[in-house]
Each structure stands twice: as C-alpha cells, then as structure tokens.
C-alpha cells in the first residue's frame, strides 16, 4: 500500500474519481451481459458485443476527462482552492491527465491483446470480423491506446475551453467523433495498395484488406469508378472486367495511423497547457 500510495494532487484525482471508474466498469459489463442475454451467447455475438463496447472506451475516457474531471472543477471553482494550495495550474492539469492517460493506455493495450487472442478462435468465414473490419482494426494493435491518449487530450482541451460539465461532454463527443471519422476516412491512403483484376464472367472479387477503391476496367486498362448497369453502358465504355484496390498489410498502416493519432494528441496537449497558462495568468 505505502509504496504504491499516491501523493498530492494525484492522490486527490484517484480519490475523487476512483469510484466513478469502478461504477463505470460495472455498468459496461452489465450492458454487455444484458445485450448477450437478449441476443444469445454464441462466439460471434460475445466477441462482437465486447468489441463494440471496447471500441467506445477511448471516447468514453475523453468525455470523462472533459466533463467531470476538468470542466466540473472549473465550473465549481474547486481549482482555485488547489491553485492557492501550492499546486500550480500546470501541475494540477498534469496530475489530472497523467493518471487517466496511463490507466487508459494500459487498459487499451491489455484489451488489444485480449481481442487478438479472442479472434484467434474465429470460425472460418465469420463476416465483419476480419482484421480490416472497421470494428476490429483499431482494437488489435496500438491504435486503440493512441486513440485513448488523443481523446483524453481533446477532452482536456474542450474542458478548458468550455468550462461547464455537460456542455463540455457534448462538445468533446462531437470533436472526438469528427477526429475518428476523419481517420477512418483517410485510412485507405495510409499504405501501399494492391489491385485485384477480374473478368466480367468472374465478377468482382472480394478484397482481403483495407478498402481503397473498386469499379470497372475498360479494354485499354483504364479504371472507371462507377460500374455500368446497362449493357449499353458496358459497350460504350468497352468494359472488360472489374478492379478492386485494397491495402493487404495490417502493420504498416496501423503504425502510420497510430503515429498520426499520437501527433493529434501532442497537438491537443500543447494547446491545452498553453491555454491554461494564459487563463491562469489572467
């Protein structure tokens, strides 16, 4: 106990929010259990339900930091008390962020290991559980932990800006949603793509990787994004087959995306501390 005991502002953070963390974990497990009671306990249901909850964890960390941890202190004025008690504003914020950030990263890394392990028992042909599926991809590598860090940083920034608990939670939810959407959208550009070709008779082949583009190929080899429906259109464009472009490898894209997400985290953190300094000075 004594060796691990936290002191000063870190102790305060643990003391203030430890119980919420416990209740939050209980609520999430309860949510999973109730859903599974309704759906059934097959392998696919269990793994998909757990993964969809885990997928929301980074955003939940961000919301919690933005609202109850930072904006509430600013709203209630509790920060003034601390800042006069030999805890500087920068140290106050560091203590607020370091503990949840470390906890979130550790949690997400452990869960990533668990997800990889659980997916190793995947039955053949289980739809939507491939490594490149949107639900799976962030949870089987370091990206989940990076997201947790970035969303906590965004939560801190929004909390400092908005300074009211519930509006801060809403605003950070929107901000996090935009960042996540942008990265999901850009993923097809973060890696070396391969293209599969097939003839008209074969039909378009499914691509085992991150989707980039697909469509028709003309006899000259040109790619047309929009596929024809009418025979007339087929003849006009002289279409000879299909193409499907995708990124076949997991790690390069995952590492690039993790790096970019960490850059977003660093940017948000820098801005947050800067803002805090100007606010504290005024």
């Amino acid at each position: 106990m004594s060796a691990l005991a936290l002191r000063g502002p870190a102790w305060l953070v643990a003391r203030q929010h430890g119980r919420t963390l416990g209740w939050g974990a209980v609520a999430l497990v309860l949510l999973i259990v109730v859903r599974l009671v309704l759906l059934g306990w097959t392998y696919v249901d269990v793994v998909q339900t757990c993964m969809s909850v885990i997928g929301f964890l980074p955003a939940l960390f961000g919301l919690f930091v933005a609202g109850p941890m930072i904006a509430r202190d600013l709203e209630s004025g509790a920060y003034r008390l601390l800042w006069t008690q030999s805890v500087s504003p920068a140290r106050w914020l560091t203590a607020k962020l370091a503990l949840p950030a470390a906890g979130a990263v550790a949690t997400m890394l452990v869960l990533a290991g668990l997800c990889r392990w659980a997916l190793s028992f995947k039955p053949d042909g289980a739809q939507g559980m491939e490594w490149y599926a949107d639900q799976v991809y962030p949870l089987i590598g370091p990206l989940g932990a990076a997201r947790a860090l970035a969303y906590i940083a965004i939560g801190a920034l929004v909390g400092i800006l908005v300074r009211r608990t519930i509006p801060a939670m809403v605003a950070s939810f929107v901000a996090i949603g935009i960042v996540e959407f942008a990265f999901n959208f850009a993923r097809g550009h973060l890696g070396t793509a391969t293209t599969l070709y097939s003839t008209l008779d074969e039909g378009m082949r499914g691509a085992p990787g991150i989707f980039v583009a697909d469509g028709n190929v003309t006899s000259t080899g040109a790619k047309i994004g929009d596929a024809c429906v009418s025979d007339q259109c087929m003849r006009e464009h002289d279409i000879s087959g299909y193409f499907n472009t995708y990124i076949p490898h997991f790690w390069p894209t995952q590492l690039i995306e993790t790096g970019l997400v960490l850059a977003v985290a660093a940017l948000a953190l820098t801005l947050t501390f800067r803002l805090l300094r100007t606010k504290a000075a005024s």
Partner: peptide
C-alpha cells in the same frame, strides 16, 4: 429504364456502382 430492352433487370444490384 431498368427492365426494358437494352438494360439490366431491375433486381440486378450493382455493388460496384458508387
């Protein structure tokens, strides 16, 4: 114009049409 001459049947779904 689906279902008429020179076009495909209406129920043929083109997954590759963006």
């Amino acid at each position: 114009g689906c279902g008429t001459a020179g076009h495909r049947a209406c129920d043929e779904w083109m997954w590759s049409d963006t």
